[in-house]
């Protein structure tokens, strides 16, 4: 099977033989798109111009009440073993649902080993966690809930807790026709996170023709997309990421965190991490998988150096000769990716 349209597997060879199928599939795709748009509209999701439709699984349709349940769970410390940590303790709206610490403490102040990622536009992400170990947002929440260094509770025990609360009990019953369970808890959280769409930055407004870049911002944009700086080679597309796993030469020794190799057990993946989106990057310091670079200036300095000569380092990384003015231009452009509408959106509070 080569493709699937609306969940129906399609063989491309068949389409070559029977061109009528193409017309049928086109109409089917239009109907599906309309359905997804309708669903998105019903829950008030505004898909920014230039963004694709988010992938919403058939077994977890978005509804306003499910999103509300997900939001309640997101900010409830009941999700941690000692009732001290909520999702929102580390994913803070003011930082585009990232945090301003290198490593954010979990229960009992325990420190894990990775920097908190922004949740902006997770609806469009294909692989979750920095190493891509989780294939879907729909059960990604298991990771922080069960991780000993984050919330530290088995999701079965969490389900028991939630089912002992009559208001949660009725909310789960209403939304899923079922009790709180590993399935319903993770799906409700995913539903809320899918609404976290950020696409109203100055950059977006410029692209939509609503505003214009300043001269310096335009120079920064041109540099960002130029072969010289080569930023957009990896930070590409509407979400400023190619979604790939790459080694950016941060270290020679990745023994503290081998990255994607933890998942694939392939030494060729040592030091590779998912290329992050740059949307709201001004707000998500510190940077890198371990939060080891404090500022955007430090990040640019790293990339200007070309990085450490690790054997898995991406071949696209090489020293970049940017002068002070160019560095400043690049910084100014990156700040146009800040979406103040997103971080002030009361729907997320």
């Amino acid at each position: 099977m080569d493709r699937d349209i609306c969940g129906i597997p399609i063989r491309l060879q068949l389409m070559k033989q029977y061109p009528q199928i193409l017309i049928f599939l086109f109409l089917l795709a239009m109907v599906c798109k309309k359905e997804m748009n309708t669903q998105a509209q019903e829950v008030g999701l505004k898909i920014p111009k230039g963004f694709p439709l988010p992938n919403i699984p058939d077994n977890n349709p978005l509804t306003p009440s499910k999103i509300a349940l997900g939001k309640r769970l997101f900010y409830d410390t009941i999700l941690s073993i000692d009732s001290t940590i909520a999702c929102g303790s580390c994913h803070k709206q003011e930082f585009a649902f990232a945090d301003n610490k290198s490593i954010s403490p979990g229960i009992e102040g325990k420190l894990g080993f990775r920097n908190v990622p922004s949740l902006a536009n997770v609806a469009f992400v294909a692989h979750f966690n920095k190493d891509g170990g989780v294939p879907t947002l729909d059960f990604q929440a298991l990771v922080p809930i069960e991780d000993d260094f984050e919330m530290g509770i088995s999701i079965q025990d969490l389900a028991k807790r939630l089912n002992a609360d009559s208001s949660y009990q009725s909310a789960f019953e209403y939304n899923f026709g079922d009790v709180a369970s590993p399935f319903t808890i993770t799906r409700a959280l995913a539903a809320f996170q899918r609404t976290m769409i950020s696409g109203n930055s100055k950059y977006d407004k410029v692209m939509r023709g609503e505003e214009t870049f300043s001269t310096q911002e335009k120079r920064g944009y041109d540099l960002f997309t130029s072969e010289k700086a080569n930023c957009s080679n990896c930070h590409s597309g509407f979400n400023f990421t190619n979604g790939e796993f790459m080694n950016n030469g941060l270290y020679l020794d990745y023994s503290k965190d081998t990255g994607r190799q933890r998942v694939t057990i392939d030494s060729a993946d040592i030091g590779k991490f998912r290329v992050p989106s740059l949307r709201n990057v001004e707000l998500t310091a510190p940077y890198m998988h371990d939060g080891s670079l404090a500022s955007l200036e430090d990040v640019i300095t790293h990339y200007k150096s070309g990085g450490q000569p690790h054997p898995n380092k991406s071949s696209t990384l090489r020293p970049i000769a940017l002068n002070e003015n160019e560095t400043a231009d690049l910084l100014i452009f990156l700040k146009t990716l800040t979406d103040t509408t997103f971080i002030n959106n009361s729907d997320f509070r």
Binding site: N59, G133, V134, P135, T136, F139, V143, Q156, P182, T186
Partner: peptide, 29 residues
């Protein structure tokens, strides 16, 4: 690989459903 049915979706009677002690991994599906 959890792509078709994941462990949260399986009935409790299924050995591949979530177990105690856990036999699933969360960080690596």
């Amino acid at each position: 690989n959890q792509s078709e049915i994941d462990f949260t979706s399986r009935p409790a009677s299924d050995p591949l459903a979530m177990q105690t002690p856990a036999m699933h991994w969360n960080w690596n599906a």
